[in-house]
Design a protein around this nucleic acid. Structure first.
Lengths: 204, 204
DNA sequence: CAGCAACTATGACGCCGGTCATAGTAGCTC
DNA sequence: GAGCTACTATGACCGGCGTCATAGTTGCTG
């Protein structure tokens, strides 16, 4: 979560993602990003000659990669590799953040999509790539748990959609209710998609 | 969809919702709203002395009421009153918009949440109220279709979460794929929640 | 040390945002 | 027609934004 010992460029991308997911793209200023990253303001134009759009796009890409890696780590750490457990871990990431920090921030990819999809084509594509780079590992994990290949991608889409929507509702309500609800309601359906007698599927 | 014959105040609220759901709150200017509504700029401070925050909050509230009424109309128009059919109608609203206009815009409530939840408490509460006013009719419809009362609200939350998330993914991808996927994958689960032999439930 | 590249530092510019101030115009009542 | 209220009309203000220009600093290479 920290990433405070990387280079200034990476820190700025990271900070941009943090601020965007909290305040949205429009309300996140370049100066804010530099200040949050503890980076010199002059470095912005040096590392991101493409301006804010480039910075936002890289923040989105970073978030996509992070989410994908996170899924892989979740899968590796599950006691019982069932789809519902993976989904619970995914939603749990946000409920834990709320319990730890007391605040609920959103997903930078969702924020960038909401704020830029209609105006900036490059950001829209970055968001699409980020979602793809997130959906891929989820689908892969599902097949590894015994979900038939043709259902893995659709179910991964359903999982991410439900999670994103629940995050938004939870932020609006100021509580994690929607996150836990979605995890509870969707879990059984996900587990039911595992091919019979295939609780331990073929690995990756 | 038009609402062009109402008073200027209502037109401005409507226009605000339209612009917010396309560009987000930050990128939507007050002058833009007045222009889009064909309303005089001077009316803004007259009808919305609370400034932009008030206008945004009313747009969110309007969207919530609209969604709730829409659900009621969907239910009334369904050939077979199954939960999956209601959900298909809800997602279909967005796919149809895409096929008609060629563009995919988002949900104003989601946009307001993403952009304002951390900064403006009143907007966060307006969004929560809007979601509640949307979830209520959905849950009501589910019970009317035979879903046990204790499962109606959770399933309504799941439906709206999935829809909101799918809208975002669809906007990012530039296609309705996620919307149709979510409708197809979630439908069976929803129908399975109908109490056995209770396809035609007690009405509202 | 010269020279060059990478990076940092800062001030200025132009633009656009929300808001305020101040008139101006209906349209109605008396 | 006076007077009041509701609404409209504009221009100005101030602040913040992203961006640019320009100069200063490292720090390595030769």
């Amino acid at each position: 979560m920290t990433g405070s010992e990387k280079g200034p460029r990476e820190r700025m991308v990271f900070s941009a993602a943090q601020l965007i997911r909290r305040d949205g793209v429009g309300a996140t200023g370049m100066r804010d990003v530099a200040a949050h990253a503890g980076a010199p303001r002059g470095s912005l134009q040096h590392y991101f000659p493409g301006g804010k759009e480039q910075l936002v796009n890289e923040a989105v890409a970073w978030a996509g990669r992070y989410a994908g890696r996170r899924v892989a780590r979740f899968v590796a750490g599950l006691a019982e590799p069932r789809p519902s457990a993976l989904f619970a871990a995914m939603t749990g990431q946000w409920t834990e953040e709320y319990e730890t920090t007391g605040a609920l921030t959103g997903c930078p990819v969702a924020a960038a999509t909401v704020d830029c999809a209609a105006a900036a084509a490059s950001t829209r594509e970055a968001a699409a790539a980020a979602f793809a780079g997130w959906r891929g590992p989820v689908a892969e994990a599902l097949t590894g748990m015994g979900v038939p290949a043709e259902r893995a991608e659709p179910l991964a889409t359903l999982m991410i959609s439900s999670l994103e929507g629940a995050i938004i509702m939870a932020r609006a309500e100021g509580g994690v209710g929607p996150l836990t609800t979605v995890a509870r309601e969707l879990g059984p359906l996900l587990d039911a998609a595992v091919a019979p007698g295939d609780g331990e599927g073929a690995g990756a």
